[in-house]
Computed example of a mutant assay.
Amino acid sequence: MDIKETFAGMPWWVKWVAVPLLALIVFGGLITSVLAFVIGLVFKVLIFVALVAALVFVVRKFTSPPSHGG
C-alpha cells in the first residue's frame, strides 16, 4: 500500500486541512523554537553588522588626518 494511493482516496479537506493541522499540533513547539532561534540569530547578526559599521565609522573619523580646505 502506497502513501499516494492512500491519500488519493481521501477527501480534499483531509489532505489540505486535517493533515497540516495535525502536523502543527504535533510539531508546533519544534517549529516555534526553530523560528525563534532563526529570528534571534538574524537579529543578532544585524546588530553585529551595525556595531561593526559604527566602529569603522568612528575609527576613520578620529584617525583620519585633518584636511585643510583650500
Results as ranks from 00 to 15, higher is better:
V19Q: 04
L51D: 09
G28A: 03
H68P: 00
P65I: 06
A18K: 12
A18P: 00
F62Y: 14
V42R: 11
F7W: 11
A8Y: 04
M10D: 02
M10H: 04
M1G: 07
S64H: 05
G9K: 15
T63Q: 03
V34N: 01
V56I: 15
T6L: 15
G70D: 07
W12Y: 13
D2F: 04
V49W: 02
F7P: 00
R60Q: 08
S67Q: 14
V45F: 09
L41W: 12
R60T: 05
I31L: 13
F57A: 14
V58S: 06
F57W: 14
F37V: 03
V42L: 14
V38S: 05
V14L: 09
G9M: 07
I31P: 00
I47D: 08
V56K: 04
G69E: 14
F57Q: 07
K15R: 15
V42W: 05
A53F: 08
V56T: 06
T32A: 14
T63S: 06
E5K: 07
A8N: 10
V42F: 10
P65K: 15
I39K: 10
H68Q: 12
A23P: 00
V38D: 03
L35H: 06
T6N: 08
K15Y: 03
V59N: 01
M1A: 11
G9E: 07
V17P: 01
A50C: 08
V59W: 02
P65D: 05
M10E: 11
A50Y: 09
F43K: 15
F48M: 11
P65W: 03
L30E: 04
L24G: 06
I3R: 07
H68E: 12
S33E: 14
G9I: 03
V56M: 06
G40M: 07
A54F: 12
S64A: 15
E5I: 02
L55R: 08
I3A: 11
V26F: 13
F37G: 01
E5Y: 01
A8P: 00
G9Y: 02
A50K: 14
F62K: 10
I31S: 04
L55F: 14
A23H: 11
K15A: 06
W13T: 11
S64K: 14
K4R: 13
R60A: 09
G40K: 11
V38N: 03
V52Y: 03
P66V: 10
M10C: 14
A36S: 15
I47V: 15
V17Y: 07
F7A: 04
F57I: 12
K15S: 12
S33F: 06
G40W: 04
G9A: 08
V19P: 00
V26P: 00
V38H: 03
P11R: 03
P66F: 03
V42Y: 06
V42M: 07
W13R: 09
S67N: 10
I25S: 07
V14G: 02
A54Y: 09
I25W: 13
G29Q: 09
T32H: 09
L30W: 05
L30R: 05
I3D: 04
L55W: 10
G9P: 00
F37Y: 13
V34G: 01
M10I: 02
G28T: 01
M10W: 07
S64P: 00
